[in-house]
Design a protein around this nucleic acid. Sequence first.
DNA 1: GTTAATACCTGTTCGC
DNA 2: TGCGAACAGGTATTAA
Length: 276
Amino acid sequence: MPELPEVETVMRGLSARMDGRVLAEVEVRRPDLRWPLPERMGPRLTGRRILGLRRRAKYILIDLDDGTSWMIHLGMSGRMLISDGPKPALETHDHVVFRTDDGTWVRFNDARRFGMMDLWPTEDVERHKLLKGIGPEPLGNAFSGPALESALAGKYTPIKAALLDQKVVAGVGNIYACEALHRSAISPRRLALNVWGSRAERLADAVKSVLTEAIAAGGSSLRDHRQVSGELGYFQHTFRVYDREGEGCPSPGCSGTVKRLVQSGRSTFYCPRCQR
DNA sequence: GTTAATACCTGTTCGC
DNA sequence: TGCGAACAGGTATTAA
């Protein structure tokens, strides 16, 4: 499930092969993913030169030479798979396939079709409906203990749910929310407004460290994520609590056991002993 | 105004 | 072995 580190990994992989290239051929194989794809997306992309690739929250933004940005969200199961040589054999759920002018093929494959794509003016992309109001990038300078504390002030929702709120901080999903809370020894049940001062500082630091380490590991591959080469990420081996119900808490000196609970309809993994 | 629950989608896993 | 239920979860929408 692509969260920020997985999207960053895919974006970097694409950037290495696509930056500066021209989109020579774009085949759109179905009219919709989660929502309808833009009208005439294939023809509008064909012939455009790529000025650069970047990431905002969980979105990949490909800036083109006509002032348009190609916005791509991988949803839950979206993959970008790169190959060279002749056109690759297409597989089930290969929804968009394209080729750059140096012969690089890219297949966008998304079994669950929770992904999305849109075309939007580059200068206005931050005001796109899906990006407007999104919180600070957790690895940027704008995100800090005080900034997090300010975003959480007055929120009567569990801190776990608040971390998943993209308006509080961008790009954190279920896995890294659990991991960051464990690293900072904060209970997922604690109300957001009660995370302030040194707790907010610890949590902001934990979010940064877990995301940074996950990016360095190529992301986490549980079921869906692949790097553009098709390789798995390997940060999942480093999880301290996620999907480790019943195992001993890995915190030094803690004798607790990892528990699972459901918050807002999704699994939370945590140690009730050391997370307060 | 807020927060919580639900819908969307399909491959995989689990229990009977 | 086979089948259906449960589950995974990001985000928009609907409900409370």
